[in-house]
Simulated assay, not measured.
Amino acid sequence: MLTFIGLGLFDEKDISLKGLEAIKNADMVFAEFYTSRLMGSTIEELEKLYGKTVHILSREDVEISPEWLAEAKEKNVVFLTGGDTMVSTTHVDLRLRAKNLGIGTKLIHGSSIASAICGLSGLQNYRFGKASTIPHPYTSIRGKTIISETPYDTIKLNKEHNMHTLVFLDIDKDKGYMTVNQALSLLLEIEERRGEGVMENAIVVGIARAGSDEPVVKAGYAHYLREADFGDPLHILVVPASLHFIEAEALVKLLGAPQEILDELDD
């Protein structure tokens, strides 16, 4: 049996009782932290709580050569991820591989950033469209810096359908954790080049360390939040479409957005 367990958002205490029980009853415990990770905890703290050794898997171990998967044919194996399990396509693919090997699977969910952003921001969950990820820029073989414009296009499409956009920020083993500030700088650079008005005067929401005791959540114009201090990772960005009155009130009164976005709705 292979049990997929989501660990929640921030530290070792976010796991559900059902998930903790499954880990304690497991023969082997594996985890990957390249798609997300618990910034408020360490592997040692996880192992202390679980009373188990946690085997950390690389991207290659999960996506290319998951030889460890065979252990689940005869043993009770759990696979841990930050956030909620199955949010990443990588994890769905792993579950399908297990199915093809005749291995039974089970899911134990954890808190997800997809729902946490609604609680933290006041934005309504049913108004979100397609999500996107902003990757770090990279250098081409000709030495040119390449910035992906896919997130900009996704935000544009969602706005055309009056839908909010959740923007995940890149985690790279060499370049580190992308910040809200870096993400906004990239989007505004694309805006300056293309001039399509997607980010011009756009209200955005930046969130840092969701799930912690003191998350940072700020709303305001993109060019202003680009200079704001969000502190340590993990960061995530939301680009709203038009705002319902309750959403606008939440952004202003809870997140510090400018009063004028409420005044405009009253006009």
Rank of each mutant, 00 (worst) to 15 (best):
L2H: 00
F4P: 00
L7P: 00
L7D: 10
L7M: 15
G8F: 09
D14N: 13
S16G: 09
L20P: 01
L20R: 01
A22S: 01
I23K: 02
N25H: 05
N25Y: 00
A26M: 06
V29S: 07
A31H: 06
A31F: 03
A31W: 02
E32M: 04
R37C: 15
R37W: 14
S41M: 03
E45K: 15
L46H: 06
Y50N: 02
K52N: 04
T53R: 15
T53W: 07
I56E: 13
R59G: 02
R59I: 08
D61V: 00
V62G: 05
E63R: 01
I64Q: 11
W68L: 05
K73A: 07
F79N: 08
T81Q: 13
V92F: 03
L96T: 04
R97W: 05
G104R: 02
K106T: 00
H109W: 02
S112F: 07
I113M: 14
A114Y: 14
C118L: 07
G122C: 10
Q124W: 09
F128L: 11
K130H: 06
A131K: 03
S132D: 14
H136E: 11
P137S: 04
I141C: 01
R142A: 15
G143M: 01
I146K: 12
T150I: 14
T154S: 05
E160G: 15
H161C: 11
N162K: 12
N162Q: 14
H164F: 12
L166F: 15
V167E: 06
V167A: 04
D170W: 13
K173V: 12
K175Q: 15
G176S: 09
T179R: 08
S185E: 14
L187K: 08
R193N: 12
R193V: 08
E196N: 10
E200H: 09
I203P: 03
V204P: 05
V204C: 11
G206T: 01
A210R: 00
G211K: 02
G211C: 05
S212I: 10
P215L: 10
A219D: 08
D229C: 07
F230H: 08
G231R: 13
P233Q: 13
L234M: 14
V238G: 01
V239N: 08
P240T: 03
A241Q: 06
A248D: 10
E249M: 14
A250V: 09
L251K: 07
V252S: 08
L255H: 09
G256D: 09
A257T: 05
P258I: 01
D266A: 11
